[in-house]
Design a protein around this nucleic acid. Structure first.
Lengths: 327, 327
DNA sequence: CTGTTAGCGCATTCAG
DNA sequence: CTGAATGCGCTAACAG
């Protein structure tokens, strides 16, 4: 496997000229360009990317952190990013963090190591301070709201999402409303919870602890909520659930245990996963794919214009109620 | 941001000593090691990965190609790989190919470019010849059977899978059996189809073209199959479906259109997606997660022992029937 | 145990 | 339009 030097020698030109041909610079004599191309072809020359990376200081690779790969919500965002990335010839380093602080930090470190040009974080375990610290090494975009003064984000308005869901349930006559949330301490969950409580109080109800389910992440978790609901004396008449797949678990298990939906219990979800559509679950939805695309665009802008001073920017996606048959 | 040279100067040692400290080599005076570490700390030194990559010829990055990220079957394999990769400190470059020849080829090219140390292909669009050609640049593992003489694979025995499914349906008394397959020309599909036809003929039936559905990839595709089935005069009494999410689409839409399952039509799927479990769809399952783990292990062995001559190896996962309520 | 030195392969001024 | 020379930051063989 020859390198650029050998190609230069064989073509009877300098390495700079080969480099120019490789990078499609103009101002190269057509004869020479052709000759270089021919030699490259004949000798199966391929560029060593690592040398290019070292020399240019860029890799055209973006990092993406997400708690788990095998989750429709995240993989839909990922698909949005992947589509845009492919379009701009960027590769994606996809890193599952399992919400581990250390693991996530090791990804942030890739930015410092120049292994990636930028980072998109779907979810975040480390503190805003840590985030700010690493943002000095390269652009970061979060797909959640964050409290830093420098790190931009694109996110769904989770407060609005729950507000819309709650208003809808209340207008349907529900008063005993429960909820399922994901990671208890995430920004997303906190905003959702606040909307839930405010709205419930606004109709004179006091949020009951036994109607609150947190740390629901998998379909299985949704199913367990159903079992727990069955044991309640004062069961809620409606549940607002942060993700469609959890809503799906709740839906199916509640049905199996004999509850009629929506008569005995109404269920409303909060994203746009196919499983929600399949089971015809009402949802307050935003486009995860679109979120991914925006995230890429914001990151890309910042990578291309590294010199510019970037203000913090927040792209907020507004949710829309999609009424189906579970409410 | 200082480099290794400046750290060396500040610590009063040579760059080699700093390098040794960085790479945890033994035979470094404890005093000097401590001093170097201190200077590194004080000056926020971070290694430039690209220089390391160039120098060592390795990146500790693995490529993964899959047709689409947003598919439970693939993301479950991916999760298996991700778990093992994290354990061995490898990063994953995840590339969506959309089954495009060119796009997939551009990923194979990463191997030649030394941007990745090895490649796992969940699915493959390019020819076996192309595969063989690129395998000279670095190890490749496919998660499908392949006809090369050098590229190893770990795959589900799709022939057996369909055979088991067909035997089960036949034993249940079904004779008019139809199928849904994914990409028409993939290896997987061909094996499945062969099992289907052989088994059906073995009970004296002739495969009917109108019972055959190909290029089913999404839930939506499954739903469309249901509509088409409704229009048949001589509708099959059972369907064997290559993926659970397609089976799920078929299941729900068929129900919605008034068919009782399994009385009017039995449905059997062929993997271990959560949606199949949720809808209680009978399936012939293999562990996709395990497949991912094997794939990583095989690839890792080959990367670590690059010198060794590797024979082609095929890890075959045997499927198991999981009986549920759709048959 | 340590330092010197020669690459790794390419991009990019700077002259011409 | 072209080439020589320098640098990117680190590893590793080699000599001591």
């Amino acid at each position: 496997m020859p390198n650029i030097k050998e190609i230069a020698k064989l073509a009877g030109v300098s390495v700079s000229t080969v480099s120019r041909v490789l990078n499609n610079h103009k101002y190269v004599n057509e004869q020479k360009r052709a000759k270089v191309l021919q030699i490259i072809e004949e000798h199966n020359y391929v560029q060593n990317s690592n040398a290019v990376h070292l020399s240019t200081g860029k890799t055209k690779v973006l990092g993406v952190t997400l708690p788990m790969v095998n989750n429709q919500y995240y993989s839909t965002i990922l698909e949005g990013i992947a589509a845009e990335a492919a379009h701009h010839d960027y590769k994606l380093m996809v890193c599952q963090t399992n919400n581990s602080l250390e693991h996530e930090r090791s990804i942030l470190q890739l930015l410092a190591n120049k292994k990636i040009d930028g980072l998109i974080m779907f979810s975040r375990a480390n503190s805003c301070d840590t985030l700010t610290e690493y943002a000095e090494y390269g652009p970061i975009i979060t797909c959640e709201a964050n409290d830093t003064t420098t790190v931009s984000s694109v996110h769904i308005d989770h407060y609005q999402t729950f507000l819309i869901g709650m208003e809808y349930l209340i207008q349907k006559g529900h008063r005993r409303i429960g909820y399922c949330l994901g990671r208890k301490n995430s920004f997303n969950s906190q905003h959702r919870k606040r909307a839930y409580e405010e709205k419930l109080r606004s109709v004179g109800m006091t949020p009951a602890p036994e109607w609150a389910f947190e740390d629901c992440v998998t379909i299985q978790d949704g199913m367990e909520v159903a079992s727990k609901l069955m044991q309640l004396e004062n069961r809620p008449t409606a549940m607002i659930v942060s993700c469609n797949h959890i809503a799906a678990g709740l839906y199916k298990e509640a049905s199996r245990l004999g509850l009629n939906i929506p008569q005995d219990i109404a269920i409303i979800g909060c994203d746009d996963q196919p499983i929600g559509e399949l089971l015809e679950i009402t949802t307050v939805s935003s486009s995860s794919n679109r979120m991914g695309r925006y995230a890429f665009e914001m990151l890309h802008e910042r990578i291309v214009n590294q010199g510019k001073v970037w203000e913090k920017e927040e792209q907020v996606l507004l949710p829309v109620l999609v009424e189906r048959n579970s409410t």
